[in-house]
């Protein structure tokens, strides 16, 4: 059973068997507005936790996406090239960005669970 974690930069990561699926949260997509382009990392890239690995663009804004964990990028969501709107429609499902093989699962301890993240977002508004 996959377990989902959240970062203060509004990324989510769903981890199962040492592999994480990363995307931006529902809250983040609402803030951005209509997503028009997602620049994804290259396959095989080794990233450190906190690296800017992707850029998500709306008409009037561009935001860096910081990797919530360290590891190697093993898959990217090719569908986003044709349909960046998936990020708006299903931010926390079909609108995922990349899959990463975690190099240090203890990094997950620094992230929030759903309940804590919801409270975190509540405080921002």
């Amino acid at each position: 059973m996959a377990k989902v974690y959240f970062s203060e930069d509004h990324e989510w990561i769903s981890v199962e068997g040492g592999v994480g699926i990363v995307g931006i949260t529902e809250y983040a997509q609402e803030q951005l507005g209509d997503v028009v382009f997602v620049e994804l990392p290259e396959l095989g890239t080794e990233v450190e936790k906190g690296d800017d690995v992707a850029v998500v663009e709306s008409v009037k804004a561009a935001s860096e996406v910081y990797s919530p964990v360290s590891g190697e990028i093993v898959e990217i969501n090719e569908d986003l090239a044709e349909a960046p709107g998936l990020v708006n429609q299903h931010a926390e499902a079909d609108g995922w960005f990349y899959k990463i093989v975690l190099s240090d699962e203890t990094e997950l301890d620094d992230l929030m669970n759903r309940k804590d993240y919801d409270a975190f977002v509540e405080d921002l508004d």
């Binding site: 209509d34 028009v36 382009f37 663009e57 008409v59 960046p84 709107g85």
Partner: peptide, 9 residues
């Protein structure tokens, strides 16, 4: 008003 999302996507 023009559809800027369409123009960019």
């Amino acid at each position: 008003r023009l559809d800027e999302t369409l123009a960019a996507r």
